[in-house]
Design a protein around this nucleic acid. Sequence first.
DNA 1: CAATTGCTTATTTTATACAATCTATTATAA
DNA 2: TTATAATAGATTGTATAAAATAAGCAATTG
Lengths: 220, 220
Amino acid sequence: MAIEYKTRTQLVVETLREKILSGEIVAGQALRQTALADELNVSRIPVREALLQLEAEGLVTFEPHKGASATELSAAQVDELFELRAMIEGDLLAASLVHITDHALAQATDILVNLDSALGKENAANTWSELNSDFHNCLYSGANRPQTANLVNILNKNADRYIRMHLLWAGGISKAGPEHAELLAFCQARDIDNAVAKLKQHILNSRDEIKAFLLQREAS
Amino acid sequence: MAIEYKTRTQLVVETLREKILSGEIVAGQALRQTALADELNVSRIPVREALLQLEAEGLVTFEPHKGASATELSAAQVDELFELRAMIEGDLLAASLVHITDHALAQATDILVNLDSALGKENAANTWSELNSDFHNCLYSGANRPQTANLVNILNKNADRYIRMHLLWAGGISKAGPEHAELLAFCQARDIDNAVAKLKQHILNSRDEIKAFLLQREAS
DNA sequence: CAATTGCTTATTTTATACAATCTATTATAA
DNA sequence: TTATAATAGATTGTATAAAATAAGCAATTG
């Protein structure tokens, strides 16, 4: 097993991404290159490059000569994002179920168990979010569509903040647990139509809950 | 009308993108930072940052300590890319047609005229490609979905190389002219279902032609 | 002679230093 | 008082220099 080498830029990317997703860096906050460089004990160059990469992921906004800031999505943008996810992930799941292996389905079952038990514990949002991502990727593994999978991951990196936020502040995606189980059941039965419908419903449900939460917050 | 300021990094991005899309930089070719910096009369930092941005667009691949190279998409990847485009652009068009203005449609008509006349002239591929992009964006202007529009643009930046290549080497997207006209007619009639079907067919047609061309080339 | 090790060179990655730009504050004039 | 200009400080953007890494070739060992 080879250890993977990581450049400082990559390490900074991962650190900053986690800070943004976890909410430690709040949306709209200016990201001063010198401050970050000092904090992380690197020079400004890797910080700049990391910020550029995060901009490409949509987590950071860059303005020439003005600097970077963590992007904040409005309720309307969240709406759009989840709608995109529903469409693309639905398509991906349909393509995946044709070829998905029993092994992948067994793996998804395992993840689901951990997912449920993660909710109560501390650091719930971070663990849950990671497992949630694993679960979904597992279901898409049969599709053999690397570009689409990559796109889905980028979209999820944007959605993740809002899912975590909701999980922390509002007690979680209330319906996620049973929805996951139902989804998995349809997948195991290779019932493509119902599985896709359930997945889309699952994504759009969380959209609705999150949007309601955001709108309420925007009002106040 | 304010002129827009551009950092060197942005200028390098544009220059390199154009070189890649036009085929001047061939796929797989190593992109040496020093060489590019000398050629463009800038230091290596803007070159690096430009390469990173292009990587995010999917036009360039970065390997730590090995450098960057222009990405080459296989026939399978092109397949996937165009399928994604058909799905997302179809959805975007449907959303757009509900609210699209007469002004936007008139603009699209104008572009179409230029588009047809661009085919014969020199530098056809570059002009055509740009106008083609304008035409489609024009039709999507009613959707008011900035994130989706942005995503579509990124996907198109990837597809563009193959469209241009096909245009140059194989005499063009043979059916594009009439298809565009038909598509516009459906849009003007606000016939959403037929317009979307026509758009998808249009995208998938070019996919088929390009894929056939690529497969033939891969064989030899 | 094959395989491995150590060195050389090319290239990338990171740091430091400087120049350009923006922002906020103060000073000046209408 | 209000608006505009000037200025200082902070911050970003770029260039150059130093360090880290990879790849290729020669030397060495079995």
